[in-house]
Every structure is written in structure tokens, then in C-alpha cells.
Design a protein around this nucleic acid. Sequence first.
DNA 1: CGCGCGATTGATTCGGCTCAATAACTGTGG
DNA 2: CCACAGTTATTGAGCCGAATCAATCGCGCG
Lengths: 235, 235
Amino acid sequence: MKTNYDFPACEHCNTRHGSIFSVLSREQQEWYSDEKGCNYYKKGQNLFNTGSKPSGLYCIFSGKIKVYKTGKAGQNHILRLCGEGEMVGYASMISEDPYSCSAQAIEDSMVCFIPARTFRESLTMNEALSISVNKLICKDIREAEKKLVNISQKTVKERLAEALLFLRHKFGTDEDETLKIHLTREELSNIVGTAPESIIRMLSDFRERGILRLDRRNIGIIDIKKLRDMARVYD
Amino acid sequence: MKTNYDFPACEHCNTRHGSIFSVLSREQQEWYSDEKGCNYYKKGQNLFNTGSKPSGLYCIFSGKIKVYKTGKAGQNHILRLCGEGEMVGYASMISEDPYSCSAQAIEDSMVCFIPARTFRESLTMNEALSISVNKLICKDIREAEKKLVNISQKTVKERLAEALLFLRHKFGTDEDETLKIHLTREELSNIVGTAPESIIRMLSDFRERGILRLDRRNIGIIDIKKLRDMARVYD
DNA sequence: CGCGCGATTGATTCGGCTCAATAACTGTGG
DNA sequence: CCACAGTTATTGAGCCGAATCAATCGCGCG
């Protein structure tokens, strides 16, 4: 297994979060601690790449990971952003297909690695885990399908507003309502599914309307009500 | 349970297909036959609607079903087309959320209904089924994510070409290469994620290029090679 | 035979992409 | 600590794909 830094053992780590591993028994968690490996990824490093074969799943201890797909013209689309306590790469591992996407650290991150064998065995032994995983994936499907409809029916402006609300909800803000996640304009455009220039224009527009405060990659949300109006999130 | 027409029992029905239920034991299949209900849906009738609560899953004996989401402006987006032997509505049933989409017969269809309780019990009793379901939903999520990237990175023309290839692959053609599925222009537009007028123009364009033959809702594929070129499906 | 929905075509508009030029920022090494 | 190189961000101009609107046509059906 890989280098162990001073990561807490699984029985102390994941349980605090509402992670799917909360259904593991104490013994199973300790077993995970023994079997798992840990790694440090510098911002920009990839956990895995499209096409390679999954050999286990990644569990984020700290930092943030983006999961993205690269189109043939080289444009990336970010499918998922994951933070502490979240899992990455389980779908491909379960279906035993090569990764259909890549994963990269967008901050320096500490990530645990649970070997496929270990995970599969615990799935077999623990029906509750199996059900949790099923539910998790089904939620992902809903999410993906919702995005699909959004991208085909909403304007860039609406999608950007929605993305900002999502980032706020998922990663939170400082006391002054500044998003805790720092993305490049290009990464934002890869979430929204548009060109970086469009993102820049829309952000400026939101700033001029008094909805946002912008300082480099810090985005402060001044008027969340207006932002919600822009997003037209009724569903 | 609902009216039983002359549907074959599950042990004679689904097994022929490569359905996930092929892993059920003979006894379990017979049990399904006892528990399941069957219904006839006329073209245009809905199996379920967004917002209602799943109480089981649908298994198509004959006919074709579209699964779609309705945007706030009333525009529909078709997420999935299902034919004989396929299952509808399992994701929402598994995650125990209200349906996030609606399902409607696009042909007169015969559809079996397996109560949630029955399905859940068989999941518990049959690990192989559980794994099959896992893999199935993982494929779905890949599919959804692929569509997401496609819709944000490909042109309408490419997406239409791809959709036609998909329809051909999934539902087949007559001897003369005419698609066996008959969709309105609007339904096609709801698959591709565009306006009906755009679909009409693109179809005419394909016809003029000698790629398609059009006769009402019959679409004949004359030059599949060119169609593949238009679709730019390299992945 | 006439009604009505679906299909078709044309004209026009517009959101958002592309290309290009410049500015600001990051971090890297001297 | 500063200069340089390479990103990343910003702004403007022009273009284009595709949506919208409007009018007509043609089936399919009662």
C-alpha cells in the first residue's frame, strides 16, 4: 500500500461525515484502515485519467477534487466537484469499466485509496452498504439528468447563477459571504458548459448589478435573492 | 394487482432477453410471475408522472416507452427510450424519491409492474441481482454524463446524426434500412435538445445529401458511413 | 369533406462563440 | 527582492448557429 501520512484511521474519519461508510461496523472500519492507502496530491495533479482501469476508489480526507471529461476538441466539462468525506471513482469501479472521466485535485489534497477487492468484499458482507451505494448512484443519475435538461433549456446566465448557488451550498462561504472554493474562470466555464469569455462577461454583469463582489478568484455573494431570481430554480 | 392479459410468465419472458432478471433462479422468476401485475398502455398514456411516488418498477413486455423531463417553459427533454425487456423507473424506486421524470408509451405497449416490496426482497435474497442492478445504474450514469458533454460540445447536426445512429442501434431497421421506431419531429427534437424546426431543417439537409430517405415518420438510412462522419463519434 | 395537428419553409433576431489584443497576476529563478 | 515568462483575466469586434415567429401546407381522422 502507499505511504501513510498522519491520516486518522477510517473509524475516526469518515464516520463524522454522513458518508456511505457510516453503515460499516466498527470492525469493518478498522479493517478499512488497515487495507487503505493514503496519498497527497498537489493542486493540478490527477488521481486518475480517462481510459485507465480502476483498481479501487478514492475517499477525500481534505482538499477538493474535480471530475471531468475531455471532449475531442480538448474542451473539458466538469461533471462533479468533491470535497472532504466524499468518494470519487466508484461508478467505474463498480461497473468494472475503464474510467470514462478524469479526476484532478483543484487544491492540495489528502486522499485515501480503498482497493477494489476490499470494497467489493465489504459490499458482499454488508447489505446496508450495498443499498447506500445504490442510492448514492441513483442520486447521481438524477443529478446528471437534471443538469442535462438545464444545459439544454437554460441560458448561460441562468446556469452560472445556479452554479454559484450550488458552490455556495456545497462548499460554503466565509463570514463575509465569500465562496470557500476558488476556481479559475475557465473551470467555472467548464462547469457551466460555456466559453471562459462568457463567464467573465456574466460575472462582470452580476457585479454591476450588485449581486456579486469579485476579487481575483474570490467570489462574494452580495445579493443571494437576486441570484436565485437569475437562476430560476423552481424545481 | 392489476388485470392479467395473456402475458407470458416471467420465467418464459425476460430470460430470453439479456435482462438483469436473467440471474434470478427459476423459483424466483415464478415468484415474480405471481407477484407482478400487467397493464396495457395506449400510445400517449403515461405510466407515471413527475412528482408521484414510485411503488414498483415497470418492465416492458412489448411496445416502447419514453422517459422525459418537463422544463418550466413546458419543453420536454427525452432522457431515455425503452423497448421490450427493459426496465423503467428503477432509479427513483431505489433512491426512494418521487419520480424526477415522467414515462409515456410512444406505441401501444404491454407493461408488467413489479411491486417495490417484491423487488427489494429479491435484491436481498439474490446477490447476483444486486450486482447486476449496480452495474446497470452505473452504465446509466456514464450514459447520462456522456450526453451531458455531448449536448454542451456538439452541434445540433452532430447530435441528430448521433441520435439516429442510436435509434438504429437500439431499435433496429426493416430490411430496407428504415428505422423501426417512429417519432414525431417534436419527439426527435426532444431527444436532441433543440427546436422542432431545427430538426426538420437538418433532416432535409441529410436527405439532400443522400444520407437519409424520409417518408412521414419513417426514416430510412441510406448512407450510414456519412451519418457516422456527421456524428463524429470517436469515443 | 372539413377540422386540426404535425410538418415545412422563410425571415429575422439574438445569445453566445471565436478571434485578437491587452492587462494583470503567479511563481520561479537569479 | 526583483525581473521575466507563462498563465489567467479582461475587453472589443464580428460572426454564426440555432431559436423564434409567422405563414402555409398536407395528412390523418372523424
